[in-house]
Design a protein around this nucleic acid. Sequence first.
RNA 1: GCUCGUGUGGUGUAGUUCGGUCCAUCAUGUCGCCCUCUCGAGGCGACGACCCGGGUUCAAAUCCCGGCACGAGCACCA
Length: 478
Amino acid sequence: MPELPNSIEGEVTLRFAPNPNGPLTLGHSRGVVINSELAEINGGRVVLRFDDTDTRVKPPEPSAYSQIEEEFEWISGRKADIVIRASDRMPVYLEYAEKMISEGFGYVCRCTAQKFKSLRDSKEECPCRANEIGMNLEHWKMMVGGSIPEGGAVVRVKTSLNLPNPALRDWPALRIQHTPHPLVGEKYKVWPLLDFQSAIEDRLQGVTHIVRGKDLMDSTRKQTILYGHFGWEYPETLYWGRVKVLEFGGFSTSGMKLEISEGKYTGWDDPRLPTISALRKRGFSSEAIRDFWLELGLTQKDISVPMQSIEAKNSSTIDPISERRSFVREPNGLILEIPEAIENYVPNISVPKHPDGTVAGAREWEIASGEIVMEESDVELANIRLKGFADVKIHEGVAEVISIERTDRRTIAHWLPVEITREAVLEIPEGDEIIRVSGVIENIDLAEGMVVQLERVGFAKIGEIPSSGAIVMSWLHG
RNA sequence: GCUCGUGUGGUGUAGUUCGGUCCAUCAUGUCGCCCUCUCGAGGCGACGACCCGGGUUCAAAUCCCGGCACGAGCACCA
């Protein structure tokens, strides 16, 4: 992490400001991780602010507020120091808007969006710009009172019209929305846009450093102009670039919301979705997500990263705590033969739950002549070592023990005596599909929700364990 | 088109502020080897990069100029 410019240890305030139009995505988690980490390093605090001032295009999802708050804590390992809802702060924003108009650096514009755009592009003043303050205040009262329909007026911040960047010229600060807000209802007819709301609130919360995506660079420029009007000094601002996770593409909350409502996905935690709830449910650790973003750091480069990169982080965090189990895919039945003459044979073996002993305990297997199962590709090898037990030679459906001790460099395969197996199905998300692999799992000390490493297969999470029938497991990664 | 930003191995990243200590860091990936005993685990090793062209300099990934490529913003969304 870079050092924060102009920062004093213990006097740093950062913020994370999502739109609660759905729960957090992997994309959002970058903001959570970076901001909370910087707060941690600098002895500062983090404001969690819900930017919910759009009731129409991306309306808030009431359940998302508490979910995001909880997810913030899960990801960062700490609670946000302050939680704010922009929709609760409307009186303040309206007050500053009125102040802006009264002092003459804001005005009510009654032009249509199209008309304003064409004037702006040719650096021309719109007719409303010259209106007197008294008239602006009158129009403002009408906006607030609800007598102007949506689209009929907007409050703009005065800037130089010669600004080289057309996006900044007399930018809009508040607009009319008559659509009720899910939390505060129809009380307000005028709502601030992000650039205004965020600028005011950052000031009020004493935000010292803003760290956000570089798609918001123009936002910084607009807000800096506004701060200039108010005589305030803008916070230090740092940016990160665009990230695309190859397997998912972008992280559009509204896009996912639509597809969930269409039934394409089962919910926000559908394993095919790049949401925090989905990743968490699948078995990703918050530490892996933190490590991932911290390693990418704060560069402004636009990057594409494979999911494998997050999976590698997850492997190293969960490997030491994941118990091992055998899972035989598409099992082939064989008869195990243990000739009398075999030396050192003992009828039971004890396999550690974790080879490094980082998890205590063992799985106790009783082994006698009888039926066992193995995977097809291992059976085909014919000469193989049954992991944890003995070297065998396979012929005509029989696995004949030739030595308990290792005799050569043959492949070591996982296997199971049928007595300790139970039917299981491994669900693997593959793009938009879910592939189901059936097999049998080592039925020892299994619990719903535990993440195990299936020997020679990879990590999976145990789902439902029904009283009868197959156990459902969901694939995590290799 | 205009505006802004970014260009280091396959993918990310360090180094660029104050040019030499950089025949360029680390992770991941790929390949190989090891493992009296799992693997897609772990250990060890190998592979692989400074966008291009000029310039300044004894010396440039680092400074200057010019290209090129990629991305974002140009919403009465956030």
